[in-house]
Amino acid sequence: MSTRGTGLALIVAGLALVLLLSVSVGARPIPVDRVWDLVWHPDGSDDAIIVHDLRIPRTILGLIVGAALGVGGALMQGLTRNPLADPGLLGVNAGAAAAVVTATALLGVVSPLVYVWFAFLGAAIVSVVVYGVGAAGHSGATPVRLALAGTAVSFALYAYVQGLTLIDRETLDQYRFWQVGALAGHAPALSGQIAPFIALGLLLAFTLGRPLNAIGLGDEAGRALGASPARTRILGAVAITLLCGAATAAVGPIAFIGLTVPHVARAITGPDQRWVLPYCALLAPVMLLGADVVGRVVNRPGELEVGIVSAVIGGPVFIAIVRRRRIAQL
C-alpha cells in the first residue's frame, strides 16, 4: 500500500474516532455507555434530548460543513494557484453576509432555516458577479484577476453589510447570530437542507482532480494535456459556490479550515489534486469536529465556538507544518 493509501486509511480511522467523540463528549458529562444507549433508545430524558437534539445534529453538521470547506479551500487554492486563497476569496462569505442582512432588513427576523436560502443565493450571485468581473477584458479570467475581483466585490459588500447593521439593531443581531461560526445552536433540520448541495459540490470537485493537475502546469501546458482552463475554472467556481456557499450559509464564515487543511493534505500527498481533494474532504471534518469537541470541554459549563478553537489549535499546527517542510507548490 502506498504512503498516500496508508495515510488515507489513517485519516478515515481518525474521522471515525472524532465522530464517536463528538457524540460522546460535551459540556454536560454523560457516561459514554449511557450516551450510546440513548442513541439507539431515546427515553425522553434530559440526556436523551441533549444527545438527539444537540450532539448528533451538531456532529452531522460538522461532518458535512467540514468536508465542504476543506474541498472548497483546496479547489480555491488549486484554481487560483494562490496558497493563501480561502473560500472567502471569490466573494462567497461577503455574498452570504450581504444576503443575510438584506433578508433581515426586508423581512425582519426569520428562522435560520429560511435565511440559509438567502445566504446561499447571495453566495451564488456574488460568485457569478466576481467571475464576470474577473473575466471581463481580453486577458480573461486569470487567477489574479479573479482574486482581485473577489476582493473588490467583498469590500463593497462588507461596506453595505456594515451600513445596514449600523442602522438597524435587529439586523445586527441576526447578522451576529449567523456569522458567529459555531456548530452549536442550529436547528437539527439545517444539515438536511444543505446536504444535497454539498454532495453535488463534492462530486463535481472530485471530477476536477485531473484537469486541475493539468492547468496547474500553466494554461498552455494544460491545454496541451487536453484540459480546458476556462471550463475547469467555471466548473471549479460552480463547485466552490455549492460547497462554500452552502457551508457558509449554514454556519457563517469559518475561515481557518478552508485555508489550512489543503496545506496539511498537500504536505502528505504532494501536489496531485486527485489525492488532495479526497484527503481534504476527510481531514477537514476531523479538524473541525476535533476543535469543536475541545471547545465543549475547555470552558465548562460554557463553550467556545469552533471558529475560535480551530484557529487557536490549528495555528500552531499550521506553523509546525510550514516550518518542517517546504509547502507543496501549487
Binding site: 480561502d86 472567502g88 476569496l89 462569505n93 461577503a94 476582493t151 467583498s154 469590500f155 462588507y158 453589510v161 456594515q162 451576529r176 456569522q179 458567529v180 461560526g181 464564515p253 475561515a255 465556538e305 471558529g307 475560535i308 484557529a311 487557536v312
Partner: peptide, 14 residues
C-alpha cells in the same frame, strides 16, 4: 470589516 473575522474580531465582537 475584513472578509474573514479573525480570532481577535470574534472575541471583540463578543
Amino acid at each position: 470589516m475584513k472578509s474573514n473575522p479573525s480570532l481577535h474580531q470574534q472575541l471583540t465582537t463578543r
